[in-house]
Simulated scan of single mutants.
Amino acid sequence: SARNNFWQQNSVEKGLIDLYQSKITVKPRVENDIAKAIERLTNEVKPLKVRHEINPYRQNNLVVPLADMHFGILKLADIKSKLVELLDIINHGYKTIVIEVIGDTLHSDKINSTETVAGTVLEDVEMPNAIDEAMQFMETIVSASLFNANNVMIKSVGGNHDYDMSYMFMIWVKERFKQAKVDVNNNYRTAYLLDHVLISIQHGDVNKKIPGQILATEHRNMWGVATTAEIHTGHLHFDKTVDENGVVMRQFSTPKPSDNWEVKNGFVGANKLMYALVYDDERLKVEHFI
């Protein structure tokens, strides 16, 4: 909005002078990104029926942690060989497969601009295409998991890049894959029990100080049942495993190429990895680095 004023005033030196004033009030233009995201992610979603085979001889469980995929920067073509290797591992067959969505699946929290949840402006990416490729990726691994496991769970938390968009994306996942147990939540962390293994997932940008103690406090019943406890995180884009008083902290890398910000600041040395973790009833047995 704008308002203009004109008036005259006496000046000692110049006598009567003309004065002008313009007041302009501005605010950021706001696109209805959430409405567009809902429309794109849930418009005419038809549940996908996958032939489901129950095999009582399957004993081990598989966990597929998906941390910091950053679709938009990441293209499906970038991880084609990794996806083939992951599918080979899934095809071995398991009692339960858990797909962990550990935040920043999408590079931006908006559709028509590229920004984090906090409003930090990022290099432009094509978010509609990013959503489409994230859908294709998820459909590929969930379909394979449903065929090769007695049970499939999908657990999720949002990230600092995509907290709102991630919530909408998980609504699509839940509607698309009715045969899986899909956890849609707006929490910063969640936990589940895989036989006698307690696993918590959180993106890694919050709850950094005493995550093991918080896990024991928030999930007392599962903590009491569990033989081992783990916390799975991402956020920092490099691989790290630490045992903190019996709670194993697994920080996962990202498979995405380095973006302009990472190149500028020299954060280019980390391995670009995906993971698949095989557990028996009580602990991790095999860790695949893909």
Score class of each variant (00 low, 15 high):
G103D: 00
R3Q: 13
E44A: 15
L66C: 05
S253T: 02
S1L: 07
S11C: 10
A226C: 01
V248N: 06
N10T: 05
L86A: 01
L236E: 07
A134K: 08
A144Q: 10
D280S: 04
S253K: 00
E115F: 05
M69T: 07
E115L: 05
F252N: 00
G72N: 09
V242C: 02
N4Y: 11
H52T: 09
N43D: 15
G246T: 09
L193A: 11
S22D: 10
F289A: 08
G204Q: 04
K178N: 12
G72D: 07
L194M: 09
T42K: 02
M249R: 15
H52C: 12
N151V: 08
I97D: 05
H288W: 03
N150I: 01
T96Q: 12
F147K: 11
H52P: 11
L273F: 05
A2N: 13
N32T: 07
K80Y: 04
W261T: 05
Y279T: 08
N10L: 08
F147W: 03
K174F: 08
N5P: 01
K49T: 15
V50S: 13
Q8C: 06
L16E: 11
K27S: 09
V30E: 10
N148G: 02
A2Q: 12
T105G: 11
D132N: 14
N151R: 12
V197Y: 09
I102A: 02
N5Y: 14
L19E: 10
A149W: 08
V173W: 10
P211F: 02
F177K: 08
I73L: 03
T217M: 13
H219S: 03
